[in-house]
Amino acid sequence: MERMRRASGGQLVYAELRRRILSLELEPGQRLYEPELAATLQVSRTPLREALRLLLAEDLVDQLPTGGMVVRPITASDIEELYGVRAALEGLMTAEAARRLTDDDLAVLQGLVERNARMVGDADDAMRAGHDLHLRIAEVAGHGWARRLHAQVDGHMSRYRPFTNESQERRTAALSEHRAIVEALAARDADGARRLAESHVLAARDVALEAIGTRLAAR
């Protein structure tokens, strides 16, 4: 935490707390106590409060009526909204990628699918491999606004993505969906690629909703 002690503002504190929230290291619904956080991060209250304000503006924490803060809970409504927005953005970018794809781009995407196949047996590795494929398609699309909005949504979805990747059945299905998307891109089928990308995201949404429902019911 030496870098944090030298920081003049809250940006480094914000980045670290954001990482902990998105990785679920700080659990959804967890109360954030300023003295405890300041001691853990070895920072003063001023940069910590600045960081918390940034997290509040990003909807990663909620303010309590008493003035304290908690990590934003994981809810079914957030899943519905986030995955719906992501499906639209992924569809748009995948269709655009089909129009702009070069042979070199295709070779990279096919390589990423094969990497996904090699890692499909491990939840974390498969998640990273699939995510890298989506990010590469966004690069190929070259749609600036869609890519920026996608990055914002994608950050929030880091908290939900592990729930979509827990079962081998879903990881295998996701790999098949990734292959189909890349095949549509190879055929330069923009409409087909759009439909497949949207369907892929919505399938992940359904798995996340089921997982969250099970988690909430167990409480």
Rank of each mutant, 00 (worst) to 15 (best):
R115P: 01
L41C: 04
T214A: 15
T172I: 04
D191L: 06
R18C: 06
G155T: 09
P35Q: 14
A146E: 01
A193P: 01
D132S: 13
Q30P: 00
S77M: 10
A38W: 04
R147V: 03
A203I: 00
R49Y: 09
D59T: 00
G67Y: 08
I74P: 00
R205G: 01
I79Q: 06
A95F: 05
A87K: 06
D124W: 11
M4C: 02
Y160V: 07
R161K: 05
A129D: 10
N165V: 01
L22T: 12
T172H: 15
Q63V: 10
D191A: 12
L41G: 05
L106W: 14
E183D: 05
L32F: 11
L133A: 13
V70S: 03
Q42T: 07
E81I: 09
H200N: 08
L112C: 12
P65D: 15
A38S: 14
R3F: 07
M1K: 03
E36S: 09
E177T: 01
L37N: 09
L17P: 00
A15C: 03
L101R: 13
R19S: 13
A138E: 05
A204W: 01
W145D: 06
R147N: 02
R5L: 07
Y83L: 03
D104H: 15
E2L: 04
R86P: 00
V70C: 01
E96R: 14
R148E: 12
E96H: 07
L149A: 06
L101V: 15
L112T: 15
I137L: 07
E16A: 12
E166T: 13
E50T: 09
R195G: 02
D105P: 02
G68Q: 15
T46Y: 14
V70R: 14
E36K: 05
L60F: 08
L202A: 05
G192A: 07
V71L: 04
R118F: 09
A88L: 08
G130H: 14
R5I: 01
R18S: 10
M1D: 08
E90C: 02
D59Q: 08
L185R: 12
S167P: 00
V13P: 01
G68T: 11
A123H: 05
L41N: 07
M127G: 15
A174S: 10
L22R: 15
M127V: 02
F163I: 03
R148L: 04
D105R: 12
L60K: 07
E210M: 03
A187G: 01
R170N: 06
L101P: 05
D206A: 14
G155Q: 14
D103P: 01
G144W: 06
R170V: 05
E36Y: 10
A141R: 06
E139I: 08
D59C: 02
V140L: 06
R128N: 08
E166P: 00
I181D: 06
R179C: 03
R170H: 13
R136A: 15
W145F: 05
A203M: 02
T94A: 14
L12P: 00
N116C: 09
Y33E: 13
R159L: 03
T40Y: 12
G144N: 04
A15I: 01
R219W: 09
I21F: 10
R99Q: 12
D105H: 15
V182H: 14
L60Y: 11
L133N: 12
R49G: 03
S8A: 14
R148H: 07
V140P: 05
H156W: 11
E114D: 14
T172P: 00
L196D: 08
S44E: 10
E34L: 09
S158L: 11
E96T: 14
E34Y: 13
